[in-house]
Simulated assay, not measured.
Amino acid sequence: MDWLQIVVLSLIQGLTEFLPISSSAHLILVPALTDWDDQGLAFDVALHFGSLLAVIWYFRSALSAMVVSWLNSIRFRKLDDDARLAWGVGLATIPVGLAGLLLNDWISTTMRSPLYLAAGLIVFGVVLAWADWRPHGQRSEYQLNWRDVALIGLAQALALFPGTSRSGITITAALLLGFNREAAARFSFLLSIPVIVLATGLESVELLGSGNAFDWQAMLAGTVLSGITAYVCIYFFLAFIQRIGMQPFVAYRLILGIILLLIYL
């Protein structure tokens, strides 16, 4: 990998991980549309680790309160809003974790096709548009119930299909359940933490067992650039989401999906 490829992939990961436009689609798409070799699993892990650091740092105050309340809920058997949110994040991760363990090999081989990406971008983009066009609820992430946790968790498992977008499908589900846009996005971003931890953990085990040599300089650069870009993306997305809505991202998904169909059909 040369430095141009490192910078481009890092910026793409940072910008797309938390936007509802599918980061995995873009990381697969770049080598498909250029003469670059596939960046490989190790570099993908580094990019996702950078995104993980960004979301943890952004939500550090909320996460600290959630951890304390979660521990108190175990000790005293009482739930406050922070503890309920912490339990919700953990429980909503179970469906995608199980689906990932069962379907990971099949998805990483059979489903890494631009046509599948196009289908995911278009179909789930239309669903996101419908969810955003409907009258919005006013619930915050601290008002979720166990039904919300189950449904959003099941929706998140659909993100394993390329082009779906994990943030896109969880924001869609939250909007349909009556959350406001900012709350839907904040809960989606919090859900990304255990998902990225599980994914990078599993991939790291595979890498360590492969015995391959790694380009540590490229991986470090990717982690830093991806993390900085992701943090900036989270900040501005949450700052403007109530005003801009989801339609610009829907339009982008549809245009990109149509372009892929025209190229590969």
Score class of each variant (00 low, 15 high):
residue 85 L to T: 14
residue 61 S to H: 08
residue 72 N to I: 00
residue 81 D to G: 14
residue 69 S to C: 02
residue 54 A to M: 12
residue 83 A to V: 05
residue 56 I to D: 01
residue 41 L to F: 10
residue 55 V to C: 07
residue 78 K to S: 11
residue 47 L to S: 11
residue 57 W to P: 00
residue 55 V to E: 03
residue 41 L to C: 08
residue 66 M to E: 05
residue 58 Y to K: 06
residue 69 S to R: 01
residue 52 L to P: 08
residue 59 F to G: 05
residue 67 V to M: 02
residue 61 S to R: 12
residue 44 D to R: 05
residue 60 R to T: 00
residue 45 V to W: 04
residue 80 D to N: 15
residue 57 W to C: 07
residue 73 S to A: 14
residue 79 L to A: 11
residue 48 H to F: 11
residue 57 W to N: 01
residue 48 H to K: 13
residue 49 F to Q: 09
residue 44 D to W: 07
residue 58 Y to M: 06
residue 79 L to I: 10
residue 64 S to R: 06
residue 59 F to H: 04
residue 71 L to I: 11
residue 78 K to Q: 14
residue 72 N to C: 05
residue 81 D to T: 15
residue 45 V to G: 09
residue 56 I to A: 02
residue 55 V to T: 12
residue 76 F to L: 13
residue 64 S to Y: 03
residue 63 L to R: 00
residue 83 A to Q: 10
residue 78 K to H: 13
residue 69 S to H: 02
residue 62 A to M: 02
residue 39 Q to T: 08
residue 53 L to Q: 07
residue 62 A to V: 06
residue 81 D to E: 15
residue 63 L to W: 04
residue 84 R to Y: 05
residue 74 I to C: 15
residue 59 F to A: 07
residue 59 F to R: 07
residue 41 L to Q: 10
residue 43 F to S: 10
residue 47 L to M: 13
residue 62 A to S: 10
residue 70 W to K: 02
residue 57 W to T: 05
residue 74 I to L: 15
residue 69 S to D: 07
residue 81 D to F: 12
residue 85 L to Q: 08
residue 66 M to Q: 03
residue 50 G to R: 11
residue 68 V to G: 01
residue 73 S to Q: 06
residue 66 M to T: 00
